[in-house]
Amino acid sequence: MALNIIKRTYERMKAMELEFKVLSNSLVIKPKGEIDSESAAFLRRKIDLEFECTAAKNMTFDLTEVDFMDSSGVGLVIGRYKKVAALGGEVRIKGANRTVARIIELSGLGRIVKMI
């Protein structure tokens, strides 16, 4: 019983809140919460599936509602960048808060994706 409750809560936590929309040829990805190794794996699957289903050429990460991100988030964006760039598209990042922006800056990610 207790284990079931824990399992259900856990499943809900694992399924990070995530919004998609397509805006002028770009798939806008808006995750909510914390991006770490666990949630990055979840996001990777969801984003790749969505990108295949839409006709968008570019990707925009809207990080307005991301309050924590470690190097797993950088790996996630670089991984998507490789896929998108191979098809001639671009990746952009918007709305990164101070903390997230510091990680992005340290990683040099700002040199391959456009910060808007």
Partner: peptide, 13 residues
């Protein structure tokens, strides 16, 4: 596995 090799750099900085 899409690791970026930045963990130790982050810890150090």
């Amino acid at each position: 596995e899409e690791r970026s090799g930045l963990g130790f750099t982050v810890m150090e900085s």
